[in-house]
Design a protein around this nucleic acid. Structure first.
Lengths: 343, 343
DNA sequence: GTGAAAGCGCTAACAC
DNA sequence: GTGTTAGCGCTTTCAC
């Protein structure tokens, strides 16, 4: 049968209490017994029993705090859905979830919110935030005081987060290019690229992947323009319409941002319905409608529900087993969808 | 806080033992107290605590038996992987998994194996089996003696299974057609369809969906032939080569079966490398290699790992809560993959 | 620094 | 038919 604390206790000659303390590296255990017991646990293949642990320590909830810039961002709905599912699934195993939503990517507001979550007693954090030096520093501080930080959807380079859960943006761009290549290989491509913000890591990676893949495949293509829609519908519509006026030969549009797609749709409708081959990113309601109406040919999605669910699940597991250090990133798939996926 | 058995006990005036028995509809409780308590539980929103239950009843394992026709079927590797993951995840919550593998779809062998699993004491069953009257009857018998049966990957019509976990085959075919439409809308399509067995439900549904979608989109297409590869590489290669000899104008091949793809690849290589637009189904090693070598343009996959994982998870949950009757089917996605997904 | 014991929610065995 | 109780694996007081 499976080996329990009691077994370890018998085998080592100390009490279960001490074994438990040793394994959860409480400081109140002598260094050598602790080491001895940990070794023994290793040898006998001890695996903590979640049920026992949850039952026992349920006064001491495993609280994970979440920061999402989700206000007025429909994309985050599915992520929130996934979070809710995980919360439901693990609440009788001692999980508690605290969600803080903000609007946009202001560094100060993010820092404040993170501190709020910390002060609220969260044992771990899942953050969707900005790649900024002050944020990086903040995450490293949290690591120092043993609060594991998981980054979700948007990575922060070179910091001590416990892992990243999100998409491979560059590959998303490559796949868009491959799709284009398969679909229109017999005509020269005149491509308009629309991004949210050129400075946005993810959008930038998508564009890079997109262009490099077209080159790798030796496509006959030209990117006639790259315009910024500022992640909102109005600007996106304006810049797209202008670009289409200036470049009458565009036959293909790649939208590298999930926000502003509705504006893009409006611009296309205003210009011409059948002229463009259109690839967009991220499945939100309005995007789905544009696919259904054949305005957009393909959407490349990134499993947002899974991102929310896995972020919570991973942190819960992380705190449930006595371990530490980094764990593997969870990279979601680039899911190609077309009209028939939505009917 | 969450409401426990003790709360129900206090609120109803009977002991926790009786409450527990009432909720798990043991027969040794008077019908009226049982009803009263169940009502109360409903009102107070009682949700059983998995940790408590698992801990208590761990002498009484929740055994799920699985039948897979997986011998010599590489497709099932990922399903088995998913099963293993779920087993690992839920074993400390009282789950035990017994896997029986057979080769092929012989009804008698399947029936025997199912009986073995039953006699072995399985509390629930997950079956990948045939849509056959005797199987149907067998499942209905199991339902009568309160062994919930979940069907995985391949459905059986009109029987009392608790749910189905698998793909929407028809939609898979529609998506293949849509992909084709997007990619080659400017030339008349001369299509060769290769199936495993025309009698196979899933393959048949794929072909029907494929053709109906091409019609719906008013494609300029002709299905020049539908051939049977018998789900093996050698036959598939032979019939494909013959079909290509007989129909020199074929410019597109739809492979509606996941087995025999390697034979299809061989036939294509023998004929001509760049002439065909090829769509296949199901991601197994050899198929992946053919995509990487640009022999196959797209594969439409069906999340086998998720099927295995969810089948076990659903049955485990089903037995963990005191409920019964059907639950929702779990339909996996039709995931379009191309070369760049595998690099 | 360590042992002993209570108690988390639940089920099953044993009384009555 | 129902009440009582032991015990599942674990953490955490409280003694010492």
């Amino acid at each position: 049968m499976t080996v329990t604390l009691k077994d370890l206790s018998k085998a080592s000659g100390v009490s279960v209490g001490t074994v438990s303390r040793a394994l959860n590296d409480k400081s109140e255990v002598s260094a050598e017994t602790a080491k001895r017991i940990r070794q023994l646990a290793q040898e006998l293949g001890y695996v903590p029993n979640r049920a026992g642990r949850a039952l026992s320590a349920q006064k001491n909830l495993n609280t994970v705090g979440i920061l999402l810039p989700s206000i007025n961002g429909p994309f985050f709905e599915d992520i929130k859905q996934g979070i809710k599912e995980a919360e439901n699934e693990f609440k009788d195993l001692g999980l508690e979830v605290i969600l803080r939503e903000v609007e946009g990517w202001d560094v100060d507001e993010h820092l404040n919110t993170i501190n709020e979550l910390k002060d609220h007693g969260c044992k771990s954090l899942a953050l969707c935030t900005v790649d900024d030096p002050r944020i990086r520093e903040c995450i490293n501080e949290l690591d120092k005081i043993n609060i594991p930080v998981l980054l979700i959807n948007n990575n922060v380079q070179n910091c001590k987060n416990v892992c990243f859960v999100g998409p491979d943006y560059r590959r998303s761009g490559e796949i868009a290019a491959a799709l284009l290549y398969k679909s229109r290989s017999y005509m020269p491509l005149k491509i308009l690229i629309v991004v949210g913000l050129k400075s946005h890591h993810g959008h930038d990676a998508r564009v890079k992947g997109f262009i490099s893949e077209l080159e790798r495949r030796k496509c006959d293509f030209e990117v006639v323009d790259i315009v910024e829609g500022m992640d909102n519908d109005i600007t996106t519509q304006q810049v797209t319409m202008e670009a289409l006026r200036n470049h009458k030969d565009v036959n293909c549009i790649y939208m590298a941002s999930g926000s502003g797609v509705s504006g893009l749709g409006a611009a296309i409708i205003a210009d011409s319905l059948d002229k463009f081959f259109v690839i967009a990113c991220d499945e939100i309601y309005t995007t789905r409608e544009l696919v259904k109406s054949d305005i957009i040919d393909f959407v490349i999605c990134q499993e947002p529900r899974t991102q929310g669910y896995q972020a919570i699940k991973l942190l819960h597991e992380y705190l449930s087993k006595p371990r530490n250090g980094r764990i593997d990133d969870y990279i979601v798939g680039n899911i190609i969808k077309l009209k028939n996926h939505f009917d």
